[in-house]
Amino acid sequence: MQVKNIKIPPRHEIRPYYQPIISLQSQEIIGYESLGRWIRDGGVESLGPFFQDPDISEDMQLMIDRHLREQAIERVAESPYPSKLFINLKPSWIYRTYKRTGVLPTIELAKKYQIDPSQIVIEITEEEFKGQLQELTWIIELYREFGCTIAIDDVGSGFSNLDRIASLQPKILKIDLNILKKSIVHDGYRALLQSFSILSSQMGASLLVEGVETKRELHTALHAGARYVQGFLFSQAEVDLQQPDAYKGMLAEELQRFGQGQFERYSQLLTVHEGLSTLIHSSAGISNADEADAVLEQMIHNVSDNCIRMYICQGDGYQTSSNYTRNEEGWSKNESYRQANWAWRPYFISNILMMNVQKQGTLSQVYTDLDTSYQIQTFSCALGEGYYLFLDLMI
């Protein structure tokens, strides 16, 4: 059959394929993204271009999609391994269908096949949405009330904007694969990936990183705080579901390697702290900027090579010392930072409180340094008498 010279796949030639989504927490497959495939001429083709073609009517796309959706729900309902099914839905499909019919077909299919609603993940796809966001949010809430999980796909791409994320309050943020790949070689994208990690934790959502093709990309996802991963490193979309522990051995090995690297890095920070302890205990007599600078000048040769900046502040956020910054020629001193206030930085007050309670140094979250654009963390520890040492460490 043809519409506007565009070939429409016959229903008997289409079927869902399943790409596994793996939990880094359990190292097991916890679900599958359902992806449409056209089986013809002895080959398998993606139906992605069909669903993205603006010349194909929405009704035709919906007819094919619902056929695929029903097959996928039936397959997961019959599986001996309880798995989540990630179903891609355009926001315009959800909005217009419900406005026209008052029915959400996915909920009806879940009831028909008696699948636990918690196994259904409604993945809101990347698409420009021209309807009322408040109304869409109310409709999406019907899925949530039924027991489905809400996810947003391609976070970081053009149309998956922050307003939509804030309004829909998803439980899973799925990161656009281009951000993952660019973050490996570009500081700006690395910072963007890290920002979505912080956003997900603030919202009580889990981060799912897709497009993981190499072990290096897996470690990038781990650094970003991903809970779930998906990609060709594990499997492409397959016609059958897989054993839940199919990738457990490989993941356990990579998690051990990642954990060891993190342990070594934090051990180095502990060594820095211990190496400074003698100087710290002798520095309780700070009462002015010159005395604070003298303490830092004693410490310069004891800090690690990745320390790019040192300064001393009081508990109210005001900097007492000069800034000591490492450059190619060595360390330079900048007195203009005396009396700068850093209480506006998100880590500052919380770190001060933690140091006072725990009586030990603390480490900030990773962030991008304003002056150098390096990815850094700030190590801080109390000096006594209300003064605190800060070391900016390049990672």
Rank of each mutant, 00 (worst) to 15 (best):
S283W: 00
G261I: 12
I30D: 01
I308G: 10
G48H: 09
G211H: 05
A226Q: 07
R345E: 01
I349T: 02
Q194W: 13
L208V: 04
Q52A: 14
G131F: 01
D371H: 09
A77K: 02
N351A: 08
S380T: 12
Y324E: 03
M394G: 10
T137V: 13
E33C: 04
I14Y: 01
E253P: 06
Q298P: 09
V209Y: 08
L208G: 03
G317P: 01
I22W: 07
E28F: 09
Y318V: 03
A289D: 13
Q360S: 11
D53L: 02
N334W: 09
G386M: 00
L391T: 07
A340P: 00
D290S: 13
E274M: 14
Y18G: 06
P244A: 04
R227P: 06
S235N: 13
Q119N: 05
M354Q: 15
D116Y: 01
N351S: 14
R37K: 06
S282M: 12
S183E: 11
Q27V: 13
G361K: 03
Y143N: 03
D371I: 03
K90E: 11
W93Y: 14
H12S: 13
L136R: 04
D154F: 05
K215Q: 15
L393E: 15
G386H: 00
D187T: 15
V357F: 10
D290V: 11
I30L: 08
Q256I: 14
Q262V: 08
S235P: 13
S157A: 12
G231K: 06
L393P: 09
D55V: 09
